[in-house]
């Protein structure tokens, strides 16, 4: 396999608070290949956004990267000096946030914000930057872009604003894009369009994407591979088909049970009992052990590492040869 565009290796992020050090990410590892869309799923608070922030070097204090590496096209970027990291943001890694209504500065025309970003990362003069901005707006599907470029954000609908945000994230042709729940705040009717747009633009450019979403349907249609996060850890990562059809991790199995069925019934078919632990009270061993129906002795003492199981990776002792014999006892 060729070198991945993004490689996250044992990334650990901690928030130092008065109540002690909270570990929001605990040895998170995954790779994203060139042109690949990696879906990231997990309950709210699982660490999806923190992962994105850590990659792009924007963790809010008091948070900090406490361990591990972020490697972008072979170059380690998590320890770059702030100014170099700043120049890399927007140029080599783009980011799309959840809420387009608040992502744009309300006091500046969308054109001003585009031109500002383009000129930050290229040597284009104002006139050329404006031309490029109009072309980008056209590409993201904004009608009459030569006129709309002088509009203010409040003159655009939510879906249109998210298109502007996408144009902003793509304007320096980054090799990697983080889209953190890009449609959660949008009207249902435009969600699919936005996802399709992101997918198309990134395909055309060969841009890799980390797509965070709650929507397994979106993952199934859009992602090439999927990572399932739980309590700041990666539970399972693998090709979308495999993970959806044959989830290995008991948590993923529960999640898949909870997807609305293809016939459109929104009811949850299987409920995982309990809820995700808070960062301050993550159990010893496997973080999922209080909710797991297949839990056994080893789960309480030893943390499961990601291991390869038939083309996809899972962090569960059930699949570790060393404990294979004990599964029946638990079942």
């Amino acid at each position: 396999m060729t070198q991945p565009v993004l490689s996250v290796q044992e990334l650990t992020v901690e928030f130092v608070t008065r109540r002690g050090t909270l570990r929001a990410l605990d040895k998170v590892s995954f790779d994203v290949a060139r042109g690949e869309v990696l879906g990231v799923v997990g309950e709210s608070g699982a660490g999806k956004s923190v992962t994105g922030s850590a990659i792009i070097g924007l963790i809010d204090p008091p948070g900090r990267i406490a361990g591990g590496k972020v490697v972008l096209s072979g170059e380690r970027v998590d320890n770059l000096p702030p100014e170099e990291m700043r120049r890399l943001r927007g140029k080599r890694i783009g980011m799309i946030f959840q809420d387009p209504l608040t992502s744009l500065n309300p006091l500046y025309r969308v054109g001003e914000q585009l031109v500002e970003t383009i000129q930050t990362h290229t040597d284009l003069n104002a006139a050329d930057a404006r031309k490029r901005a109009i072309a980008l707006l056209d590409e993201v599907g904004i009608p009459a872009p030569d006129r709309r470029i002088d509009g203010y954000p409040h003159e655009f609908s939510g879906g249109m604003r998210q298109r502007v945000v996408i144009a902003l994230a793509l304007c320096a042709e980054p090799e990697f894009i983080i889209a953190d729940e890009p449609t959660t705040a949008l009207d249902v009717s435009v969600q699919a369009q936005i996802i399709t747009l992101i997918k198309r633009l990134c395909k055309e450019r060969g841009t890799s994407v980390m797509l965070v979403t709650h929507d397994m349907g979106v993952i199934a249609e859009t992602a090439d591979r999927v990572a399932v996060m739980y309590a700041g850890r990666v539970a399972e990562v693998g090709p979308v088909r495999d993970v959806i059809k044959e989830p290995l991790h008991p948590y993923t199995q529960g999640l898949m049970g909870a997807i609305p069925s293809i016939t459109g019934e929104a009811e949850r078919l299987v409920q995982i009992p309990g809820s995700m632990p808070r960062l301050s009270s993550i159990p010893k061993g496997c973080a999922f052990n209080p909710r797991c129906s297949k839990v056994f002795a080893r789960c309480h003492v030893e943390r499961p590492e990601l291991i390869d199981v038939g083309g996809h990776q899972v962090a569960c002792h059930l699949y570790d040869q060393a404990s294979a014999g004990k599964t029946e006892i638990a079942a």
Partner: peptide, 24 residues
């Protein structure tokens, strides 16, 4: 959020402070 997004776009901190934040 728009300050965070401006940072994610790589806008220099001075510009974020004096252009984006101050006017708001």
């Amino acid at each position: 959020d728009f300050i965070r997004f401006a940072r994610a776009r790589g806008i220099p901190e001075r510009k974020i402070e004096f252009r984006h934040a101050l006017r708001n």
